[in-house]
């Protein structure tokens, strides 16, 4: 199979997955009790009022008609209108997406910047105190629920020491960039941005960091015991060169795979962190939409989350195939 065909196949599979997400979410209406009408109408609304609202929202149509209409609109790029907020879902979802992506990327940066050096040091100083410390840290990171960590971080660093903000988003990364263009105080804007994003990024990135640390450590240990490393040592190459140019590069292949997959998970999995920090991203929109049975908004959010996940996966697959042509043949 050529590389092009491989990429095409993966893309078609991705579209299938997104369609599956849409259909499954639609099917959930069958089994989920509750209705958007209850979120829109007061408790004592008459049956006539409820029926009028149902008709306005299109909920009086049979489900297959609603489904067909939804897919038809979706193919034209229209994700419908929120039952509850009355806004176009496309605009609504894309207004929330940047916040979630920003948080996911920030969490990844926090994780990678700490995890890879920690993993390498841990592997190269095996069974030394620093290794034990790193192992303990990564074990703690994997075992700690991120909502609890988030609350602790808020209590300590925001409420007690008043270093960071407790919640909200404040400025976004775009504002930081624009501050340079608009000759606004760059440092002030940057610090404001950091005051908001640091704690949620740590809360969300800690599990990820722990995972990468362990992966890097075990990968490095594996590589360092291989023959080519022995040969390099025998040739008299400097230790640093062997570790960082040869062993680490090979270790990074699985790490990059996990990184890519986890980035997708971070986008979809930031729901709890967003709730704890009132971060106005897709996660909070998902929770609101579920609570209010706002199906169009929920579907729109899940389509975007699903698509992000699929895209990242395709990207990782394609990059992986590019780096390792055997994958294509497999």
């Amino acid at each position: 199979m050529s590389f092009g065909r491989f990429a095409l196949k993966r893309s078609l599979q991705g579209i299938g997955v997104v369609w599956g997400v849409v259909t499954v979410v639609f099917a959930l209406r069958f089994v989920t009790p509750g209705s958007a009408i209850n979120a829109v109408a007061p408790l004592d609304a008459s049956q006539e009022t409820r029926q009028a609202i149902a008709a306005e929202l299109g909920l009086d149509q049979p489900l297959y008609v609603q489904y067909g209409q939804y897919i038809f609109d979706l193919l034209r790029g229209d994700m419908g209108q929120s039952y509850i907020k009355g806004q176009e879902v496309t605009a609504l979802v894309f207004s929330r997406l940047p916040a979630t992506v920003e948080l996911a990327v920030a969490a990844s940066v926090v994780a990678i910047v700490l995890a890879i050096p920690l993993g390498v040091i841990s592997a190269t100083r095996r069974n030394e105190p620093v290794d034990y410390g790193a192992t303990l840290l990564s074990l703690g990171g994997i075992s700690t629920p991120n909502f609890w960590l988030g609350i602790m971080l808020i209590l300590i660093f925001a409420v007690e020491f008043n270093i960071f903000n407790t919640s909200g988003r404040g400025v976004d990364v775009g504002d930081v960039a624009l501050s340079v263009v608009n000759a606004e105080p760059f440092v002030g804007t940057l610090l404001t941005w950091l005051a908001y994003i640091t704690l949620p990024a740590i809360a969300l990135g800690t599990y990820f960091m722990a995972l990468i640390t362990r992966l890097t450590r075990s990968g490095m240990l594996d590589e360092l015991s291989k023959g080519y490393v022995q040969a390099a040592r025998a040739k008299g190459l400097p230790r640093t060169l062997i570790r960082y140019k040869h062993a680490l590069r090979n270790t990074l292949i699985p790490v990059i795979t996990v990184l890519g997959l986890q980035l997708g998970t971070l986008i979809g999995g930031a729901v709890i962190t967003e709730a704890v920090f009132s971060w106005p991203g897709l996660g909070t929109l998902v929770i609101e939409s579920i609570n209010q049975r706002d199906w169009p908004a929920l579907q729109g959010s899940l389509i975007v989350i699903g698509t992000s996940f699929v895209l990242v996966n395709i990207l990782v697959d394609v990059v992986y195939a590019y780096l390792d042509p055997e994958v294509v043949n497999d």
């Binding site: 829109v40 109408a41 007061p42 004592d44 609304a45 008459s46 009022t49 009028a52 609202i53 008709a55 306005e56």
Partner: peptide
């Protein structure tokens, strides 16, 4: 619109 406040 079909206002949910119609009985209010």
């Amino acid at each position: 619109i079909a206002s949910p406040q119609t009985n209010d």
